[in-house]
Design a protein around this nucleic acid. Structure first.
Lengths: 206, 206
DNA sequence: CAAACAACTTAACAGTGTTAATATTTTTAC
DNA sequence: GTAAAAATATTAACACTGTTAAGTTGTTTG
């Protein structure tokens, strides 16, 4: 029965084409330029055809997010795994997070900033075994190791969420207000990581 | 010539009504519910009348931002001015920033997160003497004092922007992903401020 | 009193996401 | 092989969106 498999492949192919077209438009014209009709135009199908492959626009955005999170997981775990102390690993991971966000601002927008999170439940993005879940676990592990080595009494989960918020803040602010008179970007990111990580060292300890 | 003054007042009044209606809709139905037609409906005028008072929707959003920034400046400077050390003042100010953002999430969205910043130039919001400008200066001053007392060699502007990013990150993340399994909100905010501010203390110093 | 001006509305344009109904093609069953 | 069934794709339409052009009032001015 190779025929129905070919059909399956063709169906999957068009599905993939839709996602590719969406990604392309997002990259080329930003989130504002991403409409169902423009996607349809690009894949050379009628707009309503898309609805045979995706429930609605949000489901497309959802898959773009999942896709981006998978790439982000790769980049970050690669960065965190380049030897060195656990603190160096954590720092490298955080740095990779920021770089990834700044390299694809519109993608970062729909993943972490857009209203989508109000419709597409975050629980489906965060489901066990997903890239997002693994990403959180990776960060949690790194944080746990660092806190252990420092002999810190801080709660790892709280620290993880705090550090996440801090690097998210850097990305979100730089993306959201590109015209603000920021200090040198490199210096800002470095200082932010310095402060966040130095803040983990207990005052009594040193 | 009291007549033309009355006219002037009436015109200004309708202008204010439009802003009030917008603010009300924003608070009641969120950013997604804020449309020109809904504003018009609320003030009981035709939608196009609004364009006689504001250039476009973005100009309305701009004024909402300015308005919010003025309130934010008040709240934060009040919090920062409640005695104590400069570090306590800075912390109180940062805490007030977070609380303000969380208390009006949709307002915070359009001020710091929405795409508006791409159309309404940030330079007009940040112009000399504006609330936003004063807000930055207030934070800068607080940071400068703290760094001086700590004998820190860090650049005040860089530290200011870093701390801003950190508290922005907390607000943006909590607002953007309310369904994420956050630790206790109070604990998260406290820990974040702890880490950010502790990170200012030079390692050699203590 | 006529002309100018101001305030406001109706109608329309070009978009948006989405649904219902319809057409076309392909697969299945007799 | 042909008829019914199913899958695939399209056209037309709905209810929105921000915004503009044209037209309608009412008021002020020369």
């Amino acid at each position: 029965m190779g025929i129905i498999e070919r059909k399956e492949r063709q169906k999957e192919s068009l599905r993939q084409q839709i996602l590719d077209a969406s990604r392309h438009i997002l990259l080329a014209d930003g989130y504002a330029g991403l409409s169902m009709r423009r996607i349809a135009e690009r894949i050379e199908y009628s707009p309503t055809t898309i609805y045979l492959y995706f429930k609605n626009k949000e489901e497309i955005l959802y898959h773009l997010c999942v896709d981006a999170l998978e790439r982000q997981l790769e980049v970050i775990s690669a960065a965190a795994g380049t030897g060195g102390s656990s603190l160096q690993s954590l720092r490298a991971g955080m740095r990779a997070y920021v770089d990834f966000g700044l390299s694809e601002p519109d993608q970062y927008r729909i993943t972490y900033l857009a209203d989508i999170s109000q419709y597409v439940s975050i629980t489906s993005i965060m489901e066990k075994g997903s890239a997002a879940d693994k990403l959180c676990d990776l960060m949690r592990t790194l944080v746990k190791e660092v806190l252990f080595e420092l002999g810190s009494p801080l709660d790892p989960e709280t620290v993880f969420q705090t550090l996440w918020a801090h690097i998210h803040g850097i990305v979100a602010l730089l993306i959201g207000s590109p015209d603000f008179p920021w200090v040198d970007r490199e210096k800002l990111i470095d200082t932010s990581l310095d402060i966040s990580l130095r803040g983990l060292v207990p005052l009594t300890g040193r």
